[in-house]
Design a protein around this nucleic acid. Structure first.
Lengths: 196, 196, 196, 196
DNA sequence: ATCTAAGCGAGACGGTACGTCACGTCTTGGG
DNA sequence: CCCAAGACGTGACGTACCGTCTCGCTTAGAT
């Protein structure tokens, strides 16, 4: 018995309640966005007592994060063509599409509003943002192998230079966030700025 | 045009009230952050009636933005050395320093939370973020003139590639936001990723 | 202008709200008794916000007391016959009738539950209990004048000996609280216990 | 029946649970009064499950009553002097002392709040109040035998006239509840109010 | 020199949501 | 079969702010 993990005493948490809470939260998110998510509203719609929610999450923000993370995210489908650079462009287009949607803005503003140190908000960032970045890392490493990209780059930094502009435009909205833009990001990153 | 501009009847808005409101808001921001800013709190601290605040701003968020924009921002002091690239690095370091501070996170999360279409939030973004970006544009154009950077780049896009990673790290906090990082961003941008 | 009494600043309390609150409380008291009186219930029925109630009373108990005190109490009609002692008996019967009713038990248990030192609960006691006792005092003083009762008695104490047994039976319910009982109280008080 | 005393297998934990519950309730009563007595609090302090309490009592009020009745009440020590009247005064002083204490007010308000028809609340009243009254009855009957008090009085009624004022003052708090008062009650009862 | 409209502080209003407490019931695993 | 533990749905608590609405009082341009 290795994995028994010190099962807690007493009545276990109700799976039905948890499911209902997250479903209700998801519905509210879809209908009114993050500002419409309230503990009262969730409890009422889920047919659940408020204390039941508080037992599992500290505030409505956290419930919303948990709810979002249980939504089915359509598999982003990373392609594997001859050119790793082309794959990178495709992946970046996919990410931009997702984050330009309403849901994307919601996720972004939730991250911005979160306390940043909480465990849940880290998981949330990993789930939505950094997971995409890790896909990019795989592609980038492949690009090094295929010699499309030189050895010796700082991979983490390059990833930030690829995904960063995307979120920058999303937040600042000073220019459109489209495929032309993301393609150009990759091209400029590869080509560099040097004269000659 | 006599410039009289149809001066309205009645008692004019009180300048003292406006000043007191913004000062109080600033104090609250410093003490408890954006979540501590409430209309009640501002009114109480400023010694002002709530309707007086509502006459000028639609909600507490807007007052906070206005208050932040009236804070003295120490002039970022763009340098003019021989190398425009070096100037760019210096400027980027300065921007990173400011935004890594508590105030920087506040600004960022306020932008993320704002409705994005409101006039005030555009002004706010311009004031804090895009103004820095425009400084960068000037430096970048000079770098083209000095031939440190090739003609033909998409300047707007390059600016996004330089400032974007900064905000990306700020929001995601997956890695430190220091001078080494910003320097490397510029270097990688210049050098590109190409093998050979 | 002597009586101006330093009118408070700001918007004055709404008389309509106060009226609605007390009416609602009265209705709830009639329907479910004191245990049914809750702040939420009052607010909902009165069409009033909870804070409006809390602005005027510290808890539901106090609202119930205030509501009870604004009910029309049918004038107890103290009689003035030849015999003050007979008048006293009649008055005591009236008091017993009132307090044997549901409302009487409610009043009594509210007094018992009250904090005893609060200003409101003193007023409440005066209004419902001690006012009756003061009627008794008047009759008793008249009985002294008419020489039905000897000079030299401790009037306050005698009043307690007349009204006390009534509440004792009400609370302890060890024996019925009827006119025969109250008449006998007066008779025994007058006659005394001495042998001979 | 060897009753070896080591029977940890079975269930007769029940007695210990009962004891722990009542002890915990007593402690809570002492610390915070009747309003601090809650099922949750009792269960937590007694180290007992809530259902275990509900199996034996219907609500916290009832547990509190049961707990109070198991407190050791210092024997009131009825004296037997020459004068039964003097004995009555002494006994009444003792009763007043007890009920003027914090515990006395608690008992009184619990009786006032109780539903009056429940079996437990009858037992409670008997235990605390009417038992004292029965002591008084014995003394009073002796007083009749010794001819300090005339034959023909309504004993029950006279007892109410002696103990009633005590609880009346306790509840209404319109005047002090001291030995001088209780002595006077007896004296006035004996002497009567008649002129001449 | 009035009149009068608008702004002023204060603060109460009807609401909504908060986060907590206790209720009385139920569902676990274990003795 | 009962025990402790503790989660459940319920409902009320008392508080914080919301954005709006009177109040009586300035203030200052228009009459």
């Amino acid at each position: 018995m290795r994995e028994s993990e010190a099962r807690p005493r007493g009545r276990p948490r109700s799976v039905e309640a948890r499911t209902a809470i997250l479903r209700a939260t998801r519905e509210i998110l879809n209908e009114g966005g993050i500002t419409a998510v309230t503990m009262e509203g969730i409890a009422a719609r889920a047919g659940v007592g408020k204390p039941t929610i508080y037992r599992a999450w500290p505030n409505a923000h956290a419930v919303a994060m948990a709810a979002m993370m249980e939504t089915k995210t359509k598999a982003p489908k990373v392609s594997h063509s001859r050119s790793a650079i082309a794959d990178l462009k495709r992946q970046l287009r996919g990410v931009a599409d997702v984050f330009a949607s309403r849901m994307g803005r919601q996720v972004t503003s939730m991250i911005a509003a979160a306390s940043a140190e909480s465990e849940l908000s880290k998981v949330f960032r990993n789930h939505f943002i950094l997971a995409r970045r890790e896909e990019g890392r795989a592609i980038l490493l492949r690009a090094i192998e295929t010699k499309e990209v030189r050895r010796g780059i700082d991979v983490d930094l390059v990833l930030d230079m690829i995904y960063g502009p995307l979120f920058y435009r999303l937040l600042m909205a000073h220019a459109p966030l489209d495929g032309k833009f993301t393609d150009s990001v990759v091209e400029h990153a590869v080509k560099g700025l040097r004269a000659g």
